[in-house]
Simulated scan of single mutants.
Amino acid sequence: MNTIGAVMSYPRTKGILLVLIAATSWGVSGTVAQYLFHQQGFSSSWLVVIRLLLAGTGLLIFSHTVGKQNIWRIWKNKQDLFLLIVFGIFGMLGVQYTFFAAIEQGNAATATVLQYLAPVMIALYLCFHARTLPVKHELIAIVLALGGTFLLVTKGNIHTLAISGPAFGWGILSAFALAFYTLYPVSLLSKWGTALTVGWGMMIGGVGLSFIHPPWKFQGHWSLTSFTAVTFVVIVGTLIAFLCFMESLKYIKASEASLLACIEPLSAAFLAVVWLHVSFSPIEWLGALSIIATIFILASVKR
């Protein structure tokens, strides 16, 4: 215990450990969700509703008790409230639903890797917005992303798909949703803070989806194992993971945290292969690593 305390006393080490805990929790959470969908008969819509409502409530409680914020003030600002509703529906709900739908239609490993195409989409959008052409590093990242996606979904055979069309479609939509989720709420985050903005985004997204899929409209098999799995997805894979990631930003740079978070797709893929016996060939591993490599390349571009 003394050794652990000594290690954690170094701020940078503490930040690295926190972001690794967060990223691993996210990756494991996706694989646990696959277990609920494929082996316990749960639906992605129900799990997304429960995850958003419960985790959103937890973040708002955290903002009020620990952050000492008045969580209702944002509702009095009409302009920010409109931005928040858009973020909650199209950003938070969008990224959560498309990601879990990709897992339900395919597997956690592929869904998580495809979602990591978002940084390349962000880079392309920023180039378009600034009316500039991609620089060399960005072009390399784009080529790697396209090549990695091709290997991941075809196993190198152009005539066949290694995953279903719906799984691929939801995975690509998940990447677009993550790009929007990353770029859109910048003004809200700077004004109201991350926990409050994301907490209300989760609540708005959860309430919105409740009109389509009420949380009491359940399907699947309840057992101690499935209850534990749902609890893990909501508490560890969402609330604790998010709080750890936010806390890590106090000790390390956001760019460093983003790079370390690349362990998420690797942990999801590894656990899916070992625990759920998902087939993941060397060609697919190469495709996954090619996509993940784009984050390291884009992080080196100073603009």
Score class of each variant (00 low, 15 high):
Leu53Cys: 09
Val274Ser: 05
Cys244Thr: 13
Val236Phe: 11
Val198Ile: 15
Ser267Ile: 13
Arg73Pro: 00
Pro11Phe: 05
Val230Pro: 03
Gly193Val: 13
Leu144Glu: 03
Val233Tyr: 01
Thr3Pro: 00
Ile103Arg: 03
Ile61Trp: 11
Ala261His: 04
Leu286Val: 07
Thr110Tyr: 08
Ala118Lys: 04
Ile4Arg: 11
Gly206Glu: 04
Leu47Phe: 03
Gly106His: 07
Leu183Pro: 02
Trp75Cys: 08
Val234Gln: 02
Thr160Ala: 11
Thr3Gln: 15
Val32Ser: 03
Gln39Glu: 15
Thr149Ala: 06
Gln105Lys: 14
Trp192Lys: 10
Asn2Cys: 00
Ser267Asn: 03
Gly30Val: 08
Ser43Tyr: 09
Lys76Thr: 14
Thr132His: 14
Leu209Tyr: 01
Ser300Phe: 04
Trp192Pro: 05
Val153Tyr: 01
Ala102Cys: 08
His277Ser: 14
Ile263Val: 15
Ser43Phe: 04
Asn70Phe: 02
Ile103Ala: 01
Ser43Leu: 13
Ser44Met: 04
Trp222Val: 13
Phe232Thr: 05
Val143Tyr: 11
Ile89Glu: 10
Cys127Ala: 11
Ala254Asn: 06
Val95Gln: 11
Leu114Ile: 08
His277Tyr: 06
Met203Pro: 00
Val48Ser: 08
Ile204Phe: 04
Cys262Lys: 03
Trp285Val: 04
Phe227Trp: 10
Ala141Thr: 02
Lys302Val: 00
Ser223Leu: 11
Phe128Ser: 10
Phe296Val: 06
Gly58Met: 15
